[in-house]
Amino acid sequence: MEMKLDPRTKLFMVLIVSTIVMMSATTPLLWAVRILITLIPLVLLVAEKKYSSALKFFLLYVTALVVNFVVLVNSDGGIVVSLLTGYCGIVVQFMPSVITAWYFIRTTKTDEFISAMQKMHVPDGLTISLAVVMRFFPTIAEEYRHINDAMKMRGIVLGGGNVVKMVEFRMIPLLFSCVNIGDELSAAAVTRGLGGTVKRSSVVDLRLTVKDIFMMALFLSAAILFIAVKYIR
């Protein structure tokens, strides 16, 4: 199934989902809306062949949902139970926006993102910064893995029980690395014309199709329904 959405549609979905997660679901109907807006990005992840992350999210979400409903109903205290429901509550509460944000980040290529931002008349500088933020998370993770390995070899993962050292030992090499990578990344980008005065062009031809409009309408009506049922009634 080919289901590529416009980055603008994806952004719209992110906005709607993050609005809805701020409000709690109190009736079965509201729960249905919440679950629906969580499942759609999951299905889209599958459509974009991100099977393993889709499966992981799905399992986590469903488990949390089940625990939340089943245990919460029969809950009569106990620290483990309350801690467990607490965590599951968090998952159920925020998972929808995490999944949607993940879907957006993992399926949007950098140049798609840049040209979508251009179409929305976001200033170039902001777009560059945002694109770098998106690109940099995996880099930080990669660097951190190496630093963690190095700390294990030195036996200083816990900083010798000193919290300040624990922070320092992680932060210092990470910052040195990030600054270096940043310098090299900038050099490589500017020698390829980033930051020029000409308007940037793009090979991705972004157009809102029927799919996009349908999806936006679906999410918008979900939000309206949610708010209407919850606050107006």
């Binding site: 950098t110 690109r135 990344l185 014309g193 940037r200 062009s201």
Partner: peptide, 28 residues
């Protein structure tokens, strides 16, 4: 450049190849 890991702006290969031409505003 020397370091392959730090000279990429895009997160995908296709985007990286067209990154330069897009910057200088060539027609698609």
């Amino acid at each position: 450049f020397q370091n392959p890991r730090s000279q990429f702006f895009s997160i995908d290969t296709d985007g990286e190849i067209v990154f330069g031409p897009e910057n200088i505003g060539l027609p698609p």
